[in-house]
Design a protein around this nucleic acid. Structure first.
Length: 319
DNA sequence: GGCTAGTCGTCAT
DNA sequence: CGACTAGCC
């Protein structure tokens, strides 16, 4: 059995163990140790794991990233203030809000993993799309993550909420029809994805007052987002002028994100766009999913030889 | 009541 | 990122 593991969660939890040190530039390996302890624990269960790391930022997410950066720098200012006044616990609380997981930290963990014979893979952009690709094409038997978007990305089965003891919950797309809270009888994968976008996703915030329940009800009733929006217009519900175009963009981002194919050793789209999209839409995709990488670059990025954002070789300092 | 939209906690002693 | 919850309709 082979699984892929979303490295994001352990990377963040590890950062909390040494939030002050990371914020103040004090050398520490606690976050690496936290990750390695979890990896060693998983290895004891006779499961082969591939640790998947996030790569470059998607163009569609840059706005969100800017506001988070502001929030972190404000928290860091408050942390320094508390630290100066000798209030260590109040300072720590702010350090945890200020700490950021960097590609350099990911690289430290990847090196530590390699040293003990663990496998890792850096996604060209988002790890969840990469893991969905690995699962869909049989490179792995399962996915371990905390991210619910994996089902929307077309992953048939997801293992989530795994604690230190290795226990967790398996969510299967095929089981959704038996869901108690919301009925997914008659839902296609496309309807499920459109429901996810309608209820608010990474690439598009939801309309005011529309959450998961409303989104589910609307898609169940009208089947497609086009008909949902037509209904809203008919009902006189105010919808931003560009909402439909942005909805289309969000769907394209979900479906055609760049992922790395370990067999062909270059970047491909999560789903093949050539059969369902016209030439001009395909040519427009990089605006949403980011630039195409030449095979040599894609291979170097996937194997963590280059910084996923600058594509420059990592300095020796991180090793 | 149900639902959405904000706030909180993630470590480990 | 999800979990929790105050406060909305």
């Amino acid at each position: 059995k082979t699984v892929c593991v979303d490295a994001y969660v352990w990377l963040h939890r590890g950062a909390y163990a040494c939030a002050r040190e990371l914020c103040e530039g004090v050398p520490t390996r606690k976050h690496v140790e936290y990750f390695m302890n979890r990896a060693r624990m998983l290895a004891r269960g006779k499961i082969r794991a591939v640790y998947v790391f996030d790569g470059g930022r998607l163009p569609s997410k840059s706005g969100e990233e800017e506001s988070r950066r502001r929030g972190r720098s404000e928290a860091l200012a408050r942390a320094k203030q508390h630290a100066m006044q000798g209030n260590a616990s109040a300072a720590y609380e702010q350090y945890t809000r200020a700490v950021d997981v960097t590609p350099e930290m990911a690289r430290q963990v990847i090196d530590a993993l390699a040293k003990e014979g663990f496998e890792s893979l850096t996604a060209p952009y988002e790890a969840d799309a990469q893991m969905a690709y690995l699962a869909k094409h049989g490179f792995v038997d399962g996915v371990i993550t905390e991210d619910s978007d994996l089902i929307a990305h077309g992953c048939a089965s997801v293992f989530t909420k795994m604690g230190a003891d290795g226990h967790g919950i398996e969510i299967r797309y095929g089981d959704l029809a038996r869901n108690r809270d919301l009925s997914f009888v008659g839902f296609t994968p496309e309807m499920f994805l459109e429901m996810c976008v309608l209820s608010g996703c990474d690439y598009l915030p939801s309309l005011n007052g529309v959450g998961i329940k409303k989104a589910h009800g609307l898609i169940r009733r009208f089947k497609t987002y086009t008909k949902v929006l037509r209904h809203m217009k008919f009902e006189g519900i105010s919808v931003p002028r560009d909402y439909e175009a942005r909805f289309e963009d969000a769907l394209l981002t979900f479906k055609f994100q760049w992922v790395y194919c370990p067999k062909r050793q270059h970047n491909v789209n999560l789903n093949d766009p050539t059969v369902v999209l016209d030439e001009s839409t395909i040519a427009d995709l990089p605006r949403l999913i980011g630039a195409y990488h030449a095979p040599t670059v894609a291979h170097a990025l996937a194997n963590s030889a280059v910084h996923p954002m600058t594509l420059e070789t990592f300095g020796k300092a991180v090793a």
